[in-house]
Design a protein around this nucleic acid. Structure first.
Lengths: 191, 191
DNA sequence: CTCCATGATGGCAGTGACTGACATCAATCA
DNA sequence: TGATTGATGTCAGTCACTGCCATCATGGAG
């Protein structure tokens, strides 16, 4: 039997939905948290029970990315080098963006326009990087190789992501990222 | 002849000094901007004329780093590969930290303890990275090699910086970073 | 010399993000 | 039946940050 609450279900999702609608409509800054809560049929106070702050509502998907990243890394053959394992993990994460290019571009447009949101995005990236480095260490990779490999992998992802959004050929992110690792190797071989 | 102002000189420096003293004394969050301004003999309103926000007072040195980074990159021999040029630039920037290890460690302790400040630090790093990538492009390096090389260089700096702060041997940052580039090459050769 | 523009500052009233404390009340469970 | 739980509401408060206007030495134009 389905549990019935006295509250409308999925408050968190309604808040996220309301936030996106309002951000697209009148922009990020002019939209107050009270506006978002009102549109979701809730109060400002309740918004802050679901999201630590106004920006967080934009980054609900980060947890799923991290799960996939770590899951894939753990699945990489033990014989793989650090950077090969990172490549597997980052490419697996990239597959999650399949079919989301238009959405991603909209979102990126908003994030790029607001320093607040860019800061938050960078911290999400740093968190992913640290998680990746930690998982590499548990795999037996020593420092600073683990941190460097993690940073390099996330750099390839980040650069690839930006190119994917602009790619006129409409390739898949996985493919852009895959190629990025080859380019990384080429650049590094210049030392 | 020296210009005499009716105001005490170096308001900006006094604000920075006051902020550090208060942050070390009672911590970052409990210190209000009004506290800082008062200690500097100014008002809150004036604080915000010198610093865009409360965090910015912590990152006054970033501009000097960027100048040195770009200056050194422009001075690198044209025949150098992208990553070699980046190495020159990042190592030059690293030299600016000479003799500042104790200070840096204090500062890092505060920054690490506050998500706000970590976010701001990441944006400073991203700004440096973007500036470096742009300078590489003006040098003739194409994308995505320029962005990848810039990201790799900043990753080496970042990882090296962390190791430098903890290094029991007390080596210079330049040396830690120099070694970091070799380790980067080793990691990348694993692809 | 007079007057005016400049520029760093102060004062003040506001907005909006975020927090702590307490109340509410349907569902659930002992 | 009665206690507990958990998501929510209400309210007052703090503090970062902004806009607007006033102040007032300095320096230059006339």
């Amino acid at each position: 039997m389905v549990k019935m609450s006295r509250w409308s279900p999925n408050a968190r999702g309604r808040l996220e939905q309301a936030a996106y609608e309002l951000f697209l409509d009148k922009g990020y800054e002019p939209t107050t948290v009270a506006d978002i809560a009102k549109r979701a049929g809730l109060t400002e106070r309740t918004f802050f029970r679901h999201y630590a702050d106004k920006r967080e509502v934009f980054f609900g998907g980060a947890a799923a990315l991290q799960e996939e990243l770590l899951r894939a890394l753990d699945g990489a053959p033990p014989a793989f080098s650090a950077i090969e394992a990172v490549r597997i993990a980052v490419e697996a994460m990239s597959k999650l963006m399949h079919g989301r290019r238009a959405l991603s571009r909209e979102r990126q447009r908003i994030v790029a326009a607001h320093a607040d949101l860019r800061e938050r995005e960078l911290i999400k990236r740093a968190t992913l990087t640290a998680a990746l480095a930690g998982a590499l260490q548990r795999r037996g990779v020593r420092e600073p190789a683990a941190s460097l490999a993690a940073d390099m992998g996330m750099a390839v992802f980040h650069v690839g992501f930006g190119r994917w959004l602009e790619d006129p050929a409409g390739r898949e992110l996985v493919d852009v990222v895959h190629e990025g690792f080859d380019q990384l190797k080429a650049v590094a071989s210049g030392i």
